[in-house]
Amino acid sequence: MSDVTIIGAGVAGLWAARACLAQGLRTRLVDRKGTPGPHGCSWWAGGMLAPFCEGALSEPAVVTHGRRAAALWGEVTEVTHRGTLVLAPERDRAELQRFAARTEGHSDCDAEAIAECEPDLAGRHRRGLFFAEEAHLNPRQALQDLTQALVAAGVTVETTALAPSEAAGPVIDCRGMAASDALPGLRAVRGEMILLRAPEITLTRPIRLLHPRHPLYVVPRGNGIYMLGATQIESASRAQMTARSALELLSAAYALDPRFAEAEIIEMGADLRPAFADNLPGIVQRGATLHLNGLFRHGFLMAPALAEQAAAFLATATTGDLFRED
């Protein structure tokens, strides 16, 4: 017998399980496809824990809660604390000023500071912003490590297609887009990413390249592997990456460092981010079900905080600031 059933074992569901265990609740975790994999959108995430950068275009709650994410993830997986470097092509210098004006937690970098930070970029970029407090992780490894930590605590992911109405007792519904029938305000925002192997290039922290039309981020995954991301398209299409998106991401990477032209493309992926109208992740209560959804592009940043608030509600009936009207 369990005190709570969590449906969906993506980044939200796994964290919900961890938070429920921390509250002393007997926890059941089910997913129709089992443990995390390419079927879930968490699999395609960038893995940047960049609350300040995200703050440029997000509600303040993303910054305040996101700041705690790196420490919480550090309890279960390897987190690299090397900050974020934000650059812009010389022609788009104004983008850098605009970004600086809309974010906190950064310092200005000149050519020398950039070269010191990432020697491989020396001589290519003259101006940038450094967000020292930010961090990154490898999302697939992190999902696996989090799953293992749950197993060690006695919760394994059951491969079961369970509808929220079929569960006994309270439910935390973490099904993402699959819950859109219950959450009419939820919409899909398509994202596409590319994994490259570029052993010639050494970058040690996420780099964001600002551009008025084709912004890019590059996240190092270790062993010469880099993730390029990510498009953001108002579409519910799960089709493969379009040629246009591939061209945009690859040419932006080429602008960052021309040696990316020689990189081996090892993967291209596309999936859908669930989002509410304000793009802010949140918890919606419906009777005995808590929907933890709308994580948009903030899954790894916001899942720990959402999970804490959902578990606290079940254990002590207190609601946090991430609870929202539907």
């Binding site: 919409r187 899909a188 398209i233 108002e234 579409s235 519910a236 299409s237 089709a239 379009t242 246009r244």
Partner: peptide, 13 residues
């Protein structure tokens, strides 16, 4: 143009 015919939710908004 960019929504590949699947931007229904956004168009409805």
């Amino acid at each position: 143009r960019r929504e590949q015919g699947a931007g229904q939710a956004f168009w409805d908004m």
